[in-house]
Amino acid sequence: MGSEHMQIGEVATRTELSLRTIRHYEETGLVVPSARSRGGFRLYTEADVDRLMVIRRMKPLGFTLDEMRELLDVTDRLDAGDLPEAEREQLLGRLRGFEEAAQRRVADLRTQLARAEDFASTLRSRLRTAAAP
């Protein structure tokens, strides 16, 4: 096994994903280990780690597994290059759609966070008032 390959434990540490989650993403076809050791252990490359990081970043934004799969397909096809211009433009349009959806979801999360912070502040004030003699 060369230094360019990592076992699942190292990948889990680097991505902050559990072994179970990485295996689940493998079962659903989102990430496929690049190789297997002679003993049958999953072996991953830097590209596999990058792919898992994309998935990890999409998860808190509420993207579904199908949406993750679609985005990864779009980026894989764009990265392969040598596409007819019409197909390239269509893929870029889909990529723009994902970027817009991500921006909307980030804005929604910011709104939720502001509400949560306001609620926590209200509770702090309530505690101060209730604790005052």
Rank of each mutant, 00 (worst) to 15 (best):
S3K: 14
M6T: 06
M6P: 00
Q7A: 12
Q7N: 10
G9A: 13
T15D: 01
T15C: 11
E16C: 10
S18V: 10
S18D: 00
R20P: 02
I22N: 01
R23H: 12
R23C: 08
Y25K: 10
E27D: 15
G29H: 02
L30V: 14
L30E: 09
V31D: 00
V31E: 04
V31A: 00
V32Q: 13
V32Y: 00
P33K: 02
P33I: 08
S34G: 15
R36W: 02
S37Q: 04
S37D: 05
G40V: 08
G40R: 04
F41C: 11
F41M: 11
F41P: 04
R42P: 03
R42N: 03
L43I: 12
Y44L: 06
T45K: 07
D48K: 06
D50T: 15
R51M: 08
R51V: 11
R51F: 10
R51P: 12
L52H: 07
L52Q: 02
L52F: 06
M53K: 12
M53V: 12
V54I: 15
I55A: 04
I55N: 06
R56T: 10
R57V: 10
K59G: 01
L61F: 02
L61G: 06
G62W: 04
F63N: 01
T64A: 04
T64H: 01
T64Q: 00
L65V: 15
L65N: 05
D66K: 11
M68Y: 00
M68K: 00
M68H: 01
R69L: 01
R69T: 05
R69V: 05
R69S: 09
E70W: 10
L71E: 02
V74M: 05
T75C: 01
D76R: 10
R77T: 15
R77V: 14
R77Q: 12
L78E: 10
L78Q: 07
A80P: 00
A80G: 07
L83T: 08
L83S: 05
L83R: 07
L83W: 04
A86V: 15
E87L: 15
E87K: 05
R88K: 13
R88M: 09
E89P: 03
Q90A: 13
Q90L: 13
L91G: 09
G93D: 04
R96N: 13
R96P: 06
G97N: 07
G97Q: 07
F98A: 07
F98N: 03
F98V: 13
E99F: 03
E99W: 03
E100H: 12
Q103F: 08
Q103W: 06
R104L: 15
D108P: 05
L109S: 12
L109F: 01
L109A: 12
L109V: 12
R110Y: 01
T111S: 09
T111L: 08
T111I: 09
Q112N: 09
Q112F: 14
Q112G: 09
L113C: 08
L113Q: 14
A114C: 04
R115W: 08
E117V: 04
D118P: 02
A120P: 00
S121W: 06
S121E: 11
L123P: 06
R124T: 14
R124M: 01
S125M: 02
R126S: 14
T129H: 03
A130G: 11
A131F: 03
A131K: 07
A132K: 09
A132I: 03
